[in-house]
Design a binder for these strands. Structure first.
Lengths: 95, 95
DNA sequence: TAGACAATTAGCCAATTATCAAATTATTGT
DNA sequence: ACAATAATTTGATAATTGGCTAATTGTCTA
């Protein structure tokens, strides 16, 4: 879970996740949308992959990245829940 | 907002926030609860302060730290909302 | 005001991170 | 098999981070 928050600490990586919201995109397509080199983007993809936030799927010459919403949800809402935030009834200790 | 996610990237800092869930605690009290030196904890407090996640209040010799839940909520649920996660109806574009 | 206590700041080091250009791997089409 | 395309890996470097000890600042009390 720490890996997820570490991954989310970088603005570029958060934007990559948002870019994948609508559906999978290729590494090149994503790289083209940010003002950094392809190798740098590749490193960001690796961080996101290792956190489980995205998954890679080879499609011919390209590699398609998919957002893994459930991992994001578990981390974000899970942590929020500890503080009694979010939709939940009251999983945070109400003592 | 990036400051908040950066602050949340460190496990010790996340635990500090949880420790403050029940109410304010002094710097020393918090420092005593973690296996790192006081100066190191002080640096963590500074990061949390600059992110707006905690606020400091001098109380005699001690400094009391308060959790600022609203900042946490805004960051966590705000970002989650972008992905259509959370309690919200559907603020995420449902097109 | 001197001493004790609480916390931060200063100064340093090791490890990690973000970045790039160049080289490498993998795949497709000729 | 070769050339072209897509992406990653390698190798280098600068900046940031997390940690420590020692020194400093601020506050209380004797």
């Amino acid at each position: 879970m720490s890996d997820v928050f570490k991954a989310l600490a970088d603005p570029t990586r958060r934007q990559v996740l948002q870019a994948l919201k609508r559906g999978p995109k290729s590494a090149g397509e994503l790289a083209g949308a940010f003002p950094v080199s392809k190798p740098t983007m590749s490193a960001h993809f690796a961080v996101l992959r290792e956190a489980g936030l995205i998954t890679a799927e080879r499609q011919g010459k390209s590699i398609l990245y998919h957002l893994n919403v459930s991992v994001l949800e578990e981390a974000l809402l899970g942590f929020a829940g500890v503080f009694g935030l979010g939709s939940d009834a009251n999983p945070g200790d109400p003592s």
